[in-house]
Structures are given as C-alpha cells and as structure tokens.
C-alpha cells in the first residue's frame, strides 16, 4: 500500500535520509523507531510529499507521489508531532474544513462524531481550538486526518502530550483501523508500545534504515533473544550495529 524505494535526502552537505527502502502492506501497523535526529521525521515527510527527495520514489497504492501528487494525497493522512490545526475554528468546523479540502460530499464529516466521542472531545467540539490543550489539539488533528478515510496514515509521535487514557484510546483505535484495512506507519520512542501493537518495526539510525521486520524476525537475524529495547539500543549504539558482534 505504501512503498518507498531508495529514498535519499540531502540538506546541503548533510545527508538526512540515506537509501531508505520499505514497503507496507494493507492493514499493517508499522513502527518506525530511531534515536533523535535519526531521520524518522524527514523520511515520513518524504513519504507524505511534504519534502522532495534528492532521489528515490514513493508510491501510495498505485499512485506515484512525485508524478501524481493529488491522487496520492487523497489516499494519505499525516499527523505530525506538532498538531496542525486552526485555532480560530471550533473542533467541528475544523473537521468540516478538512472534509471540504478533500472535497468530500457535504455531511461526510458526520463520521467524525464517533471519534469525537471516543476521544472525549464531544464537550469541546464547539469550542475554539485555541482553548484546547496540546493533547486535545493532537486528537482533533488526528480526527481531521481520518475524515477523508485515508488508505495510509502516517503518525509522527502521536502520543506526545496525550494523557494515559487518550494514549490508550489512540492505541486501540489504531489497532482497530488496521484490522479494518488501514495501513499505518507510526513513529515513536515508546518501545514497549511499539513492541505491543506493531506488526513490524523499522529502526533508523543516522539516516539509514538499519533493520526492519517483525520482532521474532529481527531476533532471528541478529541471533538474540533480547527484547525490542535491547535490540534497539544495540543496533543504534555506535559501531555495534553489526550482528556478528553479538554472537
């Protein structure tokens, strides 16, 4: 459903993303892990069309993101780490606005009412977003991205700023969306959460995707019984990313 091939991005002399290739199946929940500055956000932005790659291609479904950006973007949803919302709109108005941007038929945003309830936003749905807390803005940003029924959803640190209940609701909702066929890529630092809910994970370090697969697959490749946290720390530790050192 989402394919990236040999993605490469340079900012001046700095290589932010180096030859990243990955493919996500329909209904898959993919965890995108890596230390700060590893290039996760840049890769996600390349895959949402918010950055132009120096080289490499991205396909969303059958649409090439570079050649058919409009068709590809219709299938995409992206929730960045800092919520993108209009503070002078109410929650409902924002969702209606997003529905109109995707040119959905009038009334299509009604689907969002369920998520307003699920995310405890019903009481605040008619208040200006300026009065929302960071977590509430994060939730309304997510609802705004779900309203056009994307096929692929990319979330960059979505649980930052969410209270425990909100974080659990989000996790459950994401799992449920995947079960219903939505493909999700989630970038997170919460390794236990990634271990618990993701079908596969990818680990980035210094702009390169150094490992990807299910956790048992990674354990097999690197011949270890260590959990995801140990795997992550060993892989992203300088000079110790080579599996041969571990055996």
């Amino acid at each position: 459903m989402l394919r990236a091939e040999h993605l490469h991005k340079e900012f001046g002399s700095n290589v932010a993303v180096d030859d990243v290739t990955l493919s996500l199946r329909e209904g898959e929940l993919f965890g995108f892990l890596g230390p700060n500055g590893a290039g996760k956000t840049t890769t996600i932005r390349l895959m949402t069309g918010l950055l132009t790659p120096s080289s490499g291609r991205v396909w969303v479904g059958d649409a090439d993101l570079q050649r058919e950006p409009i068709a590809a973007k219709r299938l995409l949803g992206y929730v960045p780490d800092r919520p993108l919302v209009y503070e002078k709109l109410t929650g409902r108005e924002f969702v209606r606005f997003m529905a109109a941007l995707y040119e959905l038929p009038k009334g299509a945003e009604a689907i969002a009412e369920k998520w307003f309830a699920d995310f405890d936003l019903l009481d605040a749905a008619d208040s200006l977003i300026a009065t929302y807390s960071h977590g509430m803005k994060q939730k309304i940003s997510l609802i705004g991205q779900l309203v056009h029924r994307p096929k692929v959803l990319l979330l960059d640190e979505p649980t930052v700023g969410l209270d425990p209940k909100g974080a659990r609701t989000l996790r459950n909702a994401l799992r449920q969306f995947c079960d219903e066929g939505l493909t999700i890529l989630i970038s997170t630092h919460l390794l236990p959460v990634a271990e618990m809910m993701c079908d596969r994970v990818g680990i980035m370090d210094k702009g390169r995707l150094i490992a990807q697969g299910t956790i048992p697959e990674l354990q097999k490749v690197y011949q270890t019984d260590a959990g995801l946290e140990d795997l992550f720390l060993r892989l992203t530790d300088d000079g110790k990313g080579d599996a041969s050192d571990w055996t």
């Binding site: 069309g49 950006p69 409009i70 960045p80 995707y102």
Partner: peptide, 13 residues
C-alpha cells in the same frame, strides 16, 4: 503559519 502544511499534504491544487 505552519498550518500551510495542511494544504501541502492535502489534494488541493
């Protein structure tokens, strides 16, 4: 402001 990304990630011509 930075909400300009909303237009860039959505299929708005």
């Amino acid at each position: 402001g930075e909400q300009i990304w909303i237009y860039m990630q959505s299929p708005v011509t």
